[in-house]
């Protein structure tokens, strides 16, 4: 199958190779949570809720009482994919992604400021169309900022791939399942540091660099957008408070 049209250079969904899907973010969507966010990348739609910092519920899990314990749960809704089927809780895929999100967020949260407490991050995929991992990380960042949890920097994530000898930004489901290399990158936007790098396939070293460069560009664009959303939200709250 042709994933990039050789004549026009457009991809299957009509995007250019270095074009991202449309972003949409909303903060404060879950009433009971301390912080929450809805994040959309095209048809991928993710909701995140943050509870805490709160008292540690299971003292056995606490490794170091001087730092906050961060927990994360990733789940795909039954209706998120094309075929509706009950997804067992704690399958290998979601356990792995939970771990990935947790480690990525933990790198940014200033856990030493909240001793003897725990932070729970729940992310649920409402619509899956490729790049759920990235969308979840972006949603979690927004929700954590909304909950007023101190962070070093904004963590954003974006994926990119290499199909038909073209580096592609922000793969959708069709491109994702094409079997080509899929690079997911997470960065600390301002400090310019990589906190997450995953790839499932082989790539020559020099192409890998261009693909990764492309993903980092995408991350930065997302970071700008997230910052805008947060700033607007902060201003609105401050103005209403009076």
């Amino acid at each position: 199958m042709e994933y990039v049209n050789p004549l026009t250079g457009f991809r299957v969904d009509g995007r250019r190779p270095n074009e991202m899907r449309q972003l949409k973010a909303e903060v404060g969507v879950v009433a009971r949570a301390d912080g929450s966010a809805l994040f959309e990348m095209g048809n991928t739609r993710v909701i995140a809720a943050v509870y805490g910092p709160r008292e540690v519920q299971n003292k056995g899990q606490q490794v170091n009482s001087k730092e906050a314990l961060v927990r994360c749960e990733y789940r795909m809704a039954d209706f998120s994919t094309g075929d509706r089927r009950r997804k067992p809780k704690g399958d290998r895929r979601s356990t792995e992604i939970s771990l990935v999100i947790r480690q990525t967020m933990e790198a940014s949260i200033l856990t030493h400021l909240m001793p003897h407490s725990q932070i729970d991050i729940f992310v649920q995929v409402l619509q899956a169309d490729g790049g759920t991992r990235s969308a979840c990380i972006n949603a979690a960042t927004l929700a954590l900022a909304d909950a007023g949890i101190p962070m070093r920097d904004i963590v954003t994530s974006c994926s990119s791939g290499y199909l038909c000898s073209t580096p592609l930004l922000d793969l959708n489901y069709i491109e994702d399942s094409a079997g080509g290399p899929d690079v997911t990158v997470g960065i600390l936007a301002k400090m310019d540091k990589v906190t997450l790098l995953q790839m499932d396939a082989k790539l020559p070293m020099d192409t890998f660099e261009t693909v990764m460069e492309l993903a980092i560009e995408g991350c930065k664009a997302i970071a700008n957008y997230i910052r805008e959303v947060l700033l607007e939200n902060t201003k609105r709250l401050e103005c209403q408070r009076g």
């Binding site: 920097d153 904004i154 301002k190 910052r227 700033l231 201003k235 009076g242």
Partner: peptide, 22 residues
């Protein structure tokens, strides 16, 4: 009404707003 509130609010308030990593 909300716009009105925004215009009334002292201009310093929105200028001093920051987000993470600003």
């Amino acid at each position: 009404a909300l716009n009105e509130l925004q215009t009334i609010a002292p201009s310093g308030a929105s200028a001093a707003a920051v987000t993470v990593a600003d």
